[in-house]
Each structure stands twice: as structure tokens, then as C-alpha cells.
Amino acid sequence: MRTLTHLERLEAESIHIMREAVSESERPVMLYSVGKDSATMLHLARKAFHPSPPPFPLLHVDTTWKFQAMYEFREKMVAEVGMELLVYQNPECIELGINPFDHGSAMHTDMWKTEGLKQALDLYGFDAAFGGARRDEEKSRAKERIFSLRSAQHRWDPKLQRPELWRTYNARTAPGESIRVFPLSNWTELDVWQYIHREGIPIVPLYFAESRPVVERNGTLIMVDDDRMQLESGEVPMMRKVRFRTLGCYPLTGAIESEAGTLPEIIQEMLLATTSERQGRMIDFDSSASMEKKKQEGYF
């Protein structure tokens, strides 16, 4: 008898999770951050509900500081899938002009992303939100549930988390509470890349190496994506062949020098790499438990 491959099983599981979440919630939404995990999740959603379009909107909690290529890609994808896209920008941040240069990465991320996400969820009254986080990303994520309960204040309380058995998920919420649903929980980074390769899923070109203007700052290569970039004295943008392993706000996302212009080459580089993925994302540097703290405060 035929057995399913690991990718087929992961795909089926993700589809099952999405269908359960949609059936058991009143107002689901998919958090769409334009990166490769979001692209994979979106692709799976299209499979899950085919031939219907996915029965929920996409929500992009925007910081206005993403790479231009991400905005372009987002518009293209939305047109292609024919789903509703909600873009939310925390009005307080707009008013105060919060940016990574003057306010630091921690405050920037907290106010645009963490606060912005909470505001958007409250505004629309979503009771279930799909996120693309994976258990292999970080140690504290290894215990995260697939259906993760958040209080009315969006806090994650380890004591409130429900045991998950078989493929039977408890998505019940009291008024105000919501569920974060992670359909990619059991995928690893390699699985995601391999699946993107197998399925031909479109991703933002920034993942592929190309000659781009960058400056080197504290040992990290930062791309000069637009003229809001505050150059420090003596910094002159130089052209380097770089790509990004993970995408976020351009001033906070480190590029790596690379020759990888195709998916197999990216995977090849990744397999031969000796540092883990999140190195490129500055948010986690401080302490090994910082992700968990962030989660308790409501950052995904």
C-alpha cells in the first residue's frame, strides 16, 4: 500500500487544521506578513477550500517600513488569489512617526507590530487568526499549541493552554477571547523551502541573491531600500550580491552575501549553513527567553 510522503502528510494536516478553525470560529482571518511562511500558508488555504476561495480575509499588520518589493508582491498576490486584504497601520505610530532609527527596534516592533496586531484584531472582532509560526523556529515554540488561546487582552497564558490530542482541536472561546491557529506548526524551515520548490509557490524576489545597495552596520548588512534610511557618518551604500533569509522591516533585517539565485541553491546554502535562521532577525538577540516574553505580551 502507498504511504504518504512527509510533505503530503504535512500538507494534509495543515489543510485539516484550517478547515477545523474555519468551521469552529465565527470570524477567522489570516495574518499575512508577505514572507515565505505566509506564502506557504496562503497556498495551503487555497488548497483547503478549493474550488471555493478561502472564506476569510487576509490581514497585513503593516509598519510602513517593509521592503518596497514586499508591498509590490503583496498587491500582485492579492489580485491573483482574489481575496480581501485588510491593511492595518497603528494610527498612533503614524502620528508619532515611530521608526526604527529614532525609536529603536524594540519600541518600533512593539508599537507597530504587537500593538498594531491587537488593535486590528479588536477593531474587526476576529476570533481566530492564522499565523505562520513554526515549532522549530525557537526553543520556546516547541511547546506551542496548534490552537493557542489568547485572553481578551491578547495575552498568552501557559496555564490556559489546552491539551491537544489526535487531530481533535478545541477552538471554543468566550466573548473577547481569540485563538491563534498555527497550521505550519509541524513544518521545519527545510520543509517549507522544499514545499515552495515542489509547488512552485511565488515568493518575494528578495529571497534570491541579487546585486543590492547595502551598508554594513554592527557586522550586519542592511539594505538601503528607500531614502528614509538614515545613514551614519561615513556610511556609503555599496552594491553587493545579497539575499534575505527572513523578511521584515528593511532597517531591521540583515542580508547575507550569497550567490543563490534559484530555490535549489537557496536550499543548498541553507543546508550548508552553520547558523540558524533567526540570526538575521534582530528581535531575538537579547535573551534566549525573549520570544516567550514577547508572546506573553501578545506579539504573535
Binding site: H6, R135, K139, S140, A142, K143, P158, P163, T188, A289
Partner: peptide, 27 residues
């Protein structure tokens, strides 16, 4: 494979964690 911060301080883990590895034949 140690877990959440609070647990780490107590030196014990108190939940189910999922880990991933793969070989040539299987994930």
C-alpha cells in the same frame, strides 16, 4: 531541548514539546 524559562529555572519541564529531525529516509 530544554523548555520555557520558568521551567528552566526550576530545572524541570512540565509540558509536551515537539522536536523535529530528519535523516535521508525519514522525517
Amino acid at each position: 531541548v530544554d523548555g520555557l524559562a520558568a521551567e528552566r529555572e526550576q530545572g524541570i519541564t512540565i509540558d509536551v514539546a515537539y522536536r523535529f529531525f530528519s535523516t535521508e529516509r525519514r522525517k
